[in-house]
């Protein structure tokens, strides 16, 4: 962690009182700022809340929102909800895996892409759906996801 990152971390923690119950909100905020939970940040939080690092790791590994490794610049998250499943989410995932050369949960070595799944986005009327860097794209098809991914490749931009 460089100086600037440490500054960000101190800034985040300055909004909290240092109570154990603040653990999850703090981790969510670190995750939102850094894209994952850096080792050094966990050490910081451990001292700030006076809880063992082991406890923080047990919480961080329990909840799906937390990542212990850096994520790719573009994050593709495919919904596996029931409505999406019935309407072919599996084929969408397969197509994405093929195009990106990644398996579910993996990040490309150049840190350009992370391919993930989510239990349900709650956009079931637009099934099958996915998010690209948090933005929902509905009524997907294997052809459509090819176009979406190709546009990422072209411009490297996430707002397709």
């Amino acid at each position: 962690m460089d100086e600037w990152e440490e500054e960000v971390l101190r800034e985040i923690l300055s909004f909290y009182r240092g109570e154990r119950s603040e653990l999850i909100p703090i981790l969510l905020e670190i995750q939102a700022n850094f894209g994952y939970l850096p080792k050094e940040a966990i050490l910081f939080v451990s001292e700030f809340l006076n809880v063992p690092e082991g406890h923080i790791y047990s919480v961080a590994s329990f909840y799906k929102a937390f990542r212990l490794l850096p994520l790719g610049k573009n994050r593709i998250t495919i919904c596996r909800g029931t409505a999406c499943h019935i309407r072919g989410a599996h084929q969408i995932l397969q197509e994405a895996e093929k195009v990106l050369g990644l398996k579910e949960g993996e990040t490309s070595s150049d840190l350009k892409y992370t391919l993930d799944t989510v239990a349900c986005l709650g956009c079931c009327a637009l099934a099958p759906c996915l998010t690209l860097d948090g933005k929902v794209h509905g009524l997907m098809s294997p052809e459509k996801i090819k176009t979406v991914l190709a546009s990422l490749e072209d411009g490297g931009e996430s707002d397709v």
Binding site: E19, Y63, A119
Partner: peptide
């Protein structure tokens, strides 16, 4: 804000989550 765990819909699990636990 929850952090992504289906089991937290269960009342005692949800309570533990607010308390800062798994």
């Amino acid at each position: 804000r929850g952090a992504g765990a289906f089991v937290c819909g269960e009342s005692t699990a949800l309570v533990r989550s607010i308390e800062g636990d798994k």
